[in-house]
Design a protein around this nucleic acid. Structure first.
Lengths: 357, 357
DNA sequence: CTGAAAGCGCTTACAG
DNA sequence: CTGAAAGCGCTTACAG
């Protein structure tokens, strides 16, 4: 009588099965499973034997219901087909797996409404923390998330308020360095293909560009700044306009590699040679930037490292059992100027060297 | 006395709160929530009012524990930084969201051990179904998953046994068409940069290549086939070897776009002109294949459609309440030959046209 | 049509 | 050190 005998079939073992086999209570099994102290070694061993014999694996859903943690994180990016996000996402997923967490992927296309909805869904699904790859500078949903003290970290972009933990590139310096690089190559009419000013990345890169001009005493000319929106199609149009200006800019600093590629396309279609007629630079150093046909000068960032840091900071928050939650961390990574052919420095070097001989 | 009054604070409303406010039982609330019949309209309305007033959202974890479904799917790909996977993943995530499901992303780097581990973890997390983007032709973990009748669908690649539901490209035809295209351009020494033969995609593309040669009466020459492993670095080496053969192949059919780009690089480094000295083609039609600097002739596949189909077939399985589970579906999508500059057809056409005048 | 009760598989105080 | 009991928030037979 009483409960039916356990079906010998496919039903996965539960903690009760383990308890019975080891002749202990489920509470004790739970203690062993969670490596808690206060269990006699021989009891612990018996439980472990039972676990092994039954091939028992705790049901994460039950654990999560009772507050034990779902071992799942959320990752929200703007566009997973953007190589920058794909590369960081890969590092994030792999780092999380190494720590025993899975990650739910969400794609927002930069739509605030979608991002707010995804944050809500992720919290309902009881993910233990959220990584935000594409917050806006003002971003009510993200700000509320941070304020609620729910474990989260931003990467790539940050809030204007500087609230919360984030790991970002030093975008100001990156843009400043690449712009100065063109200045050192004797450029004066340097255009800037900007990203949407609602993103910290775009705003900071524009700042860096202006700063480099200012340092060199080159007046800022707003006609040389065009919106590329970080998107290939829009950037293509903007690049055409820039390239048709007279006098034509002698260099174009693009907001990211995707838009820099659009500049290359626009130049090709207009018969403008790169780098002879116009120098071009990007931002991100995606894998294709180094290919022989592209050879894009760009600002590199440590994408895998950024992803790893984001996960590690997040898990610190997740695992900090409430009390000892420390101050938000602002981790700013250094940029690397990657000089390839598209800026003209290579050719120039060769020419100069030849002249010296 | 009895249970403490609900803390007015942040505790999210539960089904019990709703039941109390609507003066019904939790069972009735559950019925309304799940749109089950047999609820008087006025009761239903009262419950709905209570739900709205409390901002109640059912806890998916509890639902999932009791067998109600976690509303989560798993997606396992070989490499999310490969644009093919990024593009299909995007469609998958968005289609799933439209149907109210989230998706857990896993990356295997094509390691069978990792894939087996991820499948296990996903099942433990109680995802309701799994999409496999990178099965091997023999793949014990995937075969077992299919055999267990757990809802799953493969895309891109399939099992040699043809077991399970899948949506794939007609790879044989794709490779056959692009090879024939070169033959029609009068090529005879056509090399093939293969993928790992343990993948159906690679095996089928090789078959298509051989079939086109056979149809044209061109003898198969195994020295013209090299392993590119679908990876840029390995393909680069293999491409160098091919390009240094004497006589040099006049065309190279690459197993995918990533390896075709490696061929372009190798050619550039060796001073071999594309398409004048060697024609090149890829497979996948990733976004960059169309850029002005690349202009890669390739075999296009409907990536977004493939992702959408995978989700829809999977949800059919998930939602087919056991009984009416129908036969596995084998959906084979047609390839599209995308002719750009790298094959030489453009230049050739122009030349021929000029000659005619 | 509706409710009381049991149960999903764990964990966490509370006793001892 | 260990166990009995309650509970996490739902859903599902079973009664009525």
């Amino acid at each position: 009588m009483g409960r039916p005998a356990p079906r010998s079939g496919r039903r996965p073992a539960t903690i009760l099965d383990v308890a019975r086999r080891a002749s202990v209570s489920p509470a004790t099994v739970s203690r062993v499973l969670n490596r808690r102290p206060h269990v006699r070694p021989e009891v612990r061993a018996a439980v472990e034997r039972a676990v092994a014999a039954l091939g028992f694996r705790p049901n994460p859903v039950a654990r999560s219901l009772v507050g034990g943690g779902s071992r799942t994180l959320g990752l929200i990016v703007a566009d997973i087909t953007n190589p920058f996000y794909a590369e960081t996402a890969k590092a994030i997923v792999e780092t999380a797996r190494g720590r025993g967490y899975m990650v739910v992927l969400c794609n927002t296309d930069n739509l605030p409404r979608l991002q707010a909805e995804q944050i809500r869904m992720l919290r309902e699904q009881r993910v233990e923390g959220i990584i935000l790859g594409s917050v806006h500078r003002r971003d009510p949903a993200a700000e509320e998330l941070v304020a609620s003290r729910f474990p989260c970290v931003m990467y790539n972009r940050r809030l204007a308020s500087q609230a919360g933990t984030f790991v970002v590139l030093d975008n100001v310096r990156g843009a400043e360095e690449v712009t100065r690089h063109f200045i050192e190559l004797a450029h004066r009419r340097i255009a800037f293909l900007a990203g949407p000013p609602s993103f910290s990345t775009a705003a900071e890169r524009l700042t860096g560009y202006r700063r480099a001009l200012a340092h060199a005493g080159i007046p800022f000319d707003r006609r040389l700044v065009r919106q590329g929106q970080f998107k290939a199609e829009l950037a293509y149009q903007a690049a055409r306009e820039l390239l048709q200006q007279r006098p034509r800019p002698t260099a174009i600093v693009a907001g990211n590699d995707l838009t820099a590629l659009a500049v290359l396309d626009a130049a090709a279609h207009l018969g403008v040679r790169v780098p002879e007629d116009v120098g071009v630079s990007g931002f991100d150093d995606i894998e294709l930037a180094g290919s022989e046909r592209i050879q894009l000068t760009t600002v590199g960032q440590q994408k895998a490292e950024m992803g790893r840091l984001a996960v590690n900071y997040l898990l610190e928050l997740v695992e900090a059992r409430d009390g000892l939650r420390r101050d938000p961390i602002h981790h700013v990574l250094p940029p690397t100027l990657v000089v390839r052919r598209s800026c003209g420095a290579m050719a120039g070097a060769r020419v100069r060297r030849a002249a010296t001989l």
